[in-house]
Computed example of a mutant assay.
Amino acid sequence: MFINQQTIRNSISFSGIGLHTGKSVEIKILPEKVNSGINFIFKKEKIKASWKNAQISQLCTKIKKKNTYISTIEHLMSALSAIGVTNVSIQTTSEEIPILDGSAKDFVEKILDTGLVNQKIQQKIIQIKKKVNYKTIDKYIEISPNKKKLTIDYSIDYKDDFIKKQSLYYEHDLDNFKKIYLARTFCLHKDLEKIFAMGLAKGGTLDNAIVVSGNKILNQGGLRYKDEFVKHKILDCIGDLYLAEYQIYGNVITKGGGHELNLMLLKEVFKDENNYEII
């Protein structure tokens, strides 16, 4: 699937609101030369989209350099991974990327509409050589070798009256990503008080997140997929794994995972050079 490095043909702009800050934000995605990677720019500080700069965060993916941080990058990173974009810079007017409708749809469609530039130099791929895992008391994630692609086998169990148990096996390419990219971020209504107390979700509305209350959702339009919740978890996972700086080939299995587990898996992989090779 991923052969040469790619950038976008023209700059692209998005505007919206930050899910957690509630601030209005505009971003501009700009083409970059080969081997630039993906970099975010805020207040003149350039932060590479890398696990090395990532901060542990449960409700979003955050990167930081010195005293500057940029959060909620996962949906944009997921779109860039699926399309195979390797070299761009993202200028932002605020510390959080706009949530848009809570999915990766708008990012994907606008990037594809503007077009791509094949940069005629091969992408590097991270190939997993041995099984690596990370677990907590109730959550688990692992990655094992696959020489041709990234697969994700994701299971969730919310033990509630609506989401309950959902599982999905996914093979990463653009065609398959288009089958999940409409999936929106979500939360349980009973958790909102705790989330608000943390100073988060100030920009959250029923237009950019699914809210589950008891045995129903509060959103008027209903679900976009019957298994929208696990599909969104996979979408997040793809974006988080792209913080490896290159595409990863391996088989991921995770139960009850999330942003923290995804990042911890990357840290475990890169802890030992025997776990992987860059090809």
Rank of each mutant, 00 (worst) to 15 (best):
M1N: 14
F2C: 07
Q5E: 15
I12R: 06
G16S: 12
S24D: 15
L30N: 14
V34R: 14
F40P: 06
I41N: 07
S50P: 13
L59I: 10
T61M: 03
K62Q: 14
K64W: 05
S71C: 14
H75C: 07
M77Q: 12
M77P: 07
S81F: 15
G84V: 10
V85S: 04
S89I: 13
T93I: 11
S94Q: 15
I99E: 01
I99K: 02
I99A: 06
D106K: 13
L112E: 10
D113I: 06
L116P: 02
Q122R: 14
Q123A: 06
I126T: 07
Q127W: 01
K129F: 04
T136E: 15
T136V: 10
E142T: 13
E142W: 09
P145F: 09
L150N: 09
L150V: 08
T151N: 10
I152V: 13
Y154I: 05
I156C: 06
D161R: 10
I163P: 01
K165C: 02
K165W: 01
Y170W: 00
L174M: 01
L174T: 01
F177A: 00
F177R: 00
I180A: 00
Y181V: 01
A183S: 11
R184E: 00
L188R: 10
D191R: 01
D191T: 00
L192F: 04
K194V: 08
G199T: 05
I210S: 01
L235K: 05
Y242F: 15
A244L: 12
Q247A: 15
I248F: 04
G250C: 09
E260L: 12
L261P: 10
M264Q: 15
K267L: 08
V269L: 13
K271F: 08
Y276M: 03
I278G: 04
I278W: 08
